[in-house]
Design a protein around this nucleic acid. Structure first.
Lengths: 348, 348
DNA sequence: CCTAGCAGTCGGAGCGGCGGAGTGCTAAAA
DNA sequence: TTTTAGCACTCCGCCGCTCCGACTGCTAGG
């Protein structure tokens, strides 16, 4: 009968931790002898062997073949991450890099995010991604209807730090006058509203208008809806993706391909990150925990960033399962914090 | 003494062509026997061996080891491409895919380009990139100065299908009145001009203005210059980059990494594509012909696209040296043509 | 419950031999 | 002079082999 903690005896947990740490460093299956030396536990390798066998039985370890050491499974990584001290200190150089980056205040969200991914991938040596905040929640600063050519108009909506635009066909033969009027109306009516509110407003006004004006307002409403549903700005910014190719944790060529394919599916990544955003403050998805099959050999460390009291987006890194979780987590956390502040500052 | 054509006897050229074709298919060094069968030439393998030795001497071929067949060098690919019939017909399915894609007229240049890269990489199975047209040459449709918060303004310039924006700090304590005035001035003065002309205009007006107005105009001028020098819109969009990871032409892991690293350096890619844009209508850079060391194992097929009489951007594909040049060239050409038309249509 | 010892297993490195693909050369034919 | 057939030679890659070492699991004793 074992003393239990969580569901594992203390020693087994310590062993597992040591093993994962060792495996992350070397990438080679770990043997009982090596563990005896590295774990700091004062027990013989034979004892350790017994424990290892038990841990394997429980699904935490695998043996590539009978006479090899053990390698961690997804489950082991999960336990390892959960056992990680909740905060590890960032190294000075890294902290400094982050501060320096955010010191030079950039004014454009896209620019900030691009820089952020580069920063993050430089810090961690993994690929990094950022999910841009949607214009949806923030309020409209200004909106414009601009004549582009004979019969095309461009509806432009400025949010905080973001711009959405949609092309609208003008009704054939619509007078300058009408265009002007509608443009002015919208400009005044939309200011300070969110996208959703603006759309409702447009719909309201559609009902009471007629003729060309009605058509225009209707189309503007559609455009607003499209901005809500699929904003241009709602995309994923990536940095350091070549790190994936260098990463020896992805040893099989096929794995590499799958990860790159997954990264290319914006929508998939969006889902992955959005899911992570719900979990505060830093979420880690390991191997098969990822919803996308192509990422089953990879891990994702993600954190939401917030401004004005609400989450607006997510950043994260993608690396091999044997990534340096402690470093990745603290880097992502620190960058997310700073990023929140930077985005907050933009909202002035 | 040989009958020369170009600088190679006719048979040698034919041999080289057959060899490259074969190597592209198989990826294995080609032997004299196989060539005798494949080339269609009615000569014995012994004769071919002699020619091969000569071609090797001339630097067109290499032998991995004494008892292996021959593989083409960069030089051979170059000759092969130059000997390619100037136009090969696109397969029906491909032509149809292109037409279908451009049929659904998209209104936003960025959207079109993103779609174009996806189309191109689906057609060719290589990674593809597109270099967005700069707003620089096209004329300004509208420009706006928008108050974002307490002391920040956003200068927004609409070109044809593109938007550039820059943040400007307002002079502390500047009156609404001044802002309004400057905004109106610029709106009228810039319309129809190119970015460069608008900047000159701003500089002119700076000279005769004073006080806050002068400061504002000066900063607007700087913003315009920054748009000229480093437009937001001047970026590279990529598609199908995971094709690089699947591509067995990149057999060494290290090569893969280098190509991905190169692709991440936007500026490098820009240079590469811009160079290609000068050469009409389709340019091919093979191996060491590429200016970036990381791309020395790769080939780039690129073509400019034009609208309104001038080149506005470039599209291209990146693949292994043993790529299917004929297919890539015709796909790139066809897509570039259609893209030109689509962008042209945008300028209405 | 832990440990020492030991037999057993299995992959990987190293080695030699073999077969095959392909070459270069030579000498004869066109 | 060019082409061809024939032939000896080279060298890679594969196969099977053995051996080594790194582990394990088990057993028996503390």
């Amino acid at each position: 009968m074992e003393r239990q903690q969580g569901s594992l005896s203390e020693r087994k947990a310590a062993l597992l931790r040591a093993l994962v740490r060792h495996y992350i460093r070397t990438g080679e299956p770990v043997g009982s002898e090596a563990l005896a030396a590295a774990s700091g536990l004062h027990v013989s390798s034979a004892t350790i062997r017994n424990d290892l066998a038990a841990l394997e039985e429980l699904g935490y370890l695998t043996q590539p073949h009978t006479s090899a050491g053990r390698a961690p499974t997804d489950l082991a990584y999960r336990l390892y991450v959960d056992m990680l001290p909740s905060r590890t200190k960032l190294r000075d150089a890294e902290r400094r890099a982050i501060v320096t980056f955010f010191d030079e205040a950039l004014a454009d969200v896209d620019e900030i995010l691009r820089g952020t991914t580069q920063l993050l991938s430089r810090l961690t040596r993994y690929a990094s991604l950022a999910f841009a905040p949607s214009v949806g929640e923030s309020s409209i600063v200004r909106s414009e209807l601009i004549g582009l050519g004979s019969a095309t108009l461009l509806l432009v909506v400025f949010g905080t730090g973001r711009v959405e635009k949609r092309v609208i066909e003008a009704p054939p033969g619509a007078s300058e006058d009408v265009l002007e009027r509608v443009s002015r109306t919208m400009m005044q009516a939309f200011r300070g509203k969110t996208l959703g509110e603006a759309r409702v407003e447009a719909e309201e006004r559609t009902k009471v208008a007629s003729g060309d004006e009605r058509v225009l307002l209707e189309r503007a409403g559609e455009a607003l809806r499209s901005m809500e549903d699929a904003p241009d700005s709602e995309h994923v910014v990536m940095g350091g993706v070549s790190n994936i190719a260098s990463e020896e944790g992805f040893n099989r060529r096929d794995t590499l391909r799958q990860v790159y394919e997954a990264l290319e599916r914006e929508s998939a990544m969006l889902g992955l990150l959005r899911e992570a955003a719900a979990i505060s403050p830093v979420s880690v998805s390991i191997g098969h925990e990822n919803p996308i099959p192509g990422m089953w050999e990879a891990s994702v460390v993600a954190a939401p960033y917030a401004a004005g009291g609400g989450t607006v987006g997510t950043i994260g890194v993608v690396g091999p399962m044997r990534m340096d979780y402690a470093a990745a987590i603290s880097a992502v956390r620190a960058v997310a914090d700073r990023l929140s502040a930077a985005v907050e500052a933009l909202r002035t």
